[in-house]
Amino acid sequence: MQQFNGRCDLHTHSQASDGMQPPAENVKLAKQRGLSAVALTDHDTVAGVAEAQQAGREYGIDVVAGVEISARAGGKDIHVLGYYVNTEDEQFLDRLRGLREAREERNHLIIAKLQELGLEISWQEVIDGLGRPLEPDESIGRPHMADVLVRKGYAADMRDAFNRYLAEGQPGYVSVPRVAPEDACQWIKDAGGAAVIAHPGLYGDDELVRRILEDSRPDGIEVVHSDHGPEEERRYAELAQEFGLIQTGGSDYHGVRQGVVFHGDLGSKTVTIDVLDKLRAAAAKS
């Protein structure tokens, strides 16, 4: 009989955004790895949550309805995680739809910039690379384009595609207007959820992170993440204590592309089950 370890991975992605596998597969993996709970936090969409929660009932895994909202502050892309959101809230769904439309506009601009660089890549190739029809409310991201760049020989692997073309500051990078983190936090709370600032270590600017916490008043901050080392975890745990925030964590699992797991394997970064109680309590106050 499967033994659950009281651990939770609160940051995973599926095919509903830029993950590699169906939502149910994330839940199956969580069970195989002995987790007690897993959150599905796709970018700007909750399209995969229903499937994940159905799989959770089948596997006996607690599946948290989540989302990862794209925001911008201080000239940087900032991500805000939402937990226990109402996935049927029409206002929230409409707001997410607007974000996906901005994302699609950005995607076409990226393709145009890559073409200007002499790279033969088309939007249709990105869609074809999915290997399946694009479902309603799903979102396409830079990893999908990176996958095409690797397959066509323009990059050695996914990281090389980002480092050479798609990462911030590189020639294929495009930024479009985004909501502010404080708006993203408010949207999540309006939808009955708990708001958490994602992977602060990736922003490379702790003063900006501090300002975001002051302005946005989130419920938590992601202390444990696949791209955080021990020093980052210590620093953000202290920041969480200073601001009275819930300390969350997760792998930021996107699946395997070109033989590489991004950002970390599901279940490799976890928090204890009591974090869910704290997030539920915060969501209840929304």
Results as ranks from 00 to 15, higher is better:
E238H: 11
Q91A: 13
G98R: 08
V271K: 05
Y165R: 11
A167I: 05
L245F: 03
R57S: 14
V261R: 10
F243D: 00
I121G: 01
F162D: 02
G153F: 10
D89G: 07
K28S: 13
A283D: 04
I127W: 04
A167S: 15
L134Y: 04
G129M: 01
D265F: 04
A39R: 06
E90L: 13
A237N: 03
I221N: 08
V38Q: 05
G172R: 13
R103V: 10
T248Q: 03
G56S: 10
G250M: 06
G19F: 05
M20F: 00
K269C: 03
V67Y: 05
E207D: 15
S216V: 12
V126W: 00
Q54L: 15
R97P: 00
G259W: 13
R211C: 02
T272E: 14
A283E: 07
A71M: 11
E168F: 09
F243M: 00
G229N: 15
G220Y: 06
V179A: 01
R106Q: 14
K269Q: 06
F262I: 10
T87V: 15
D227R: 11
L239I: 15
D160W: 09
G267L: 07
H144L: 03
S139Q: 00
A184Y: 09
I61D: 03
L114A: 02
E116C: 04
A30F: 14
A71F: 08
R280W: 08
I121R: 02
H108M: 10
S36D: 13
S17C: 11
V261S: 09
Q247M: 15
H11L: 01
R211D: 09
E232L: 10
A146G: 14
H263K: 07
I273T: 09
Q32W: 01
A50H: 12
Q186W: 07
V38S: 06
H13E: 04
T45C: 02
Q21W: 11
L109F: 12
E168M: 15
V271P: 04
L134P: 03
G193K: 00
Q53G: 01
L29K: 15
C185L: 02
M20I: 00
R151F: 02
H144W: 09
R103G: 05
Q186P: 00
Y236E: 12
W123C: 00
D205G: 04
R235W: 05
V38F: 07
V179S: 08
E120L: 06
H13D: 01
I121D: 01
V260P: 01
Q15I: 13
F243I: 02
M145V: 15
E104Q: 13
V261C: 12
A198D: 11
P200K: 02
F262V: 04
H254P: 06
E135K: 15
E68R: 03
I61T: 11
S226Q: 09
R178F: 09
G204N: 14
R151G: 00
Q91Y: 12
V223Y: 02
L114C: 09
D89T: 07
F4H: 10
D62P: 00
E231Y: 13
D42N: 09
L276T: 07
A167R: 13
E231L: 13
A156H: 06
R72D: 09
E242V: 07
H43E: 02
T41R: 08
G255H: 04
A112W: 14
V49M: 09
P230M: 01
G82I: 02
L130K: 11
E116N: 13
G118E: 05
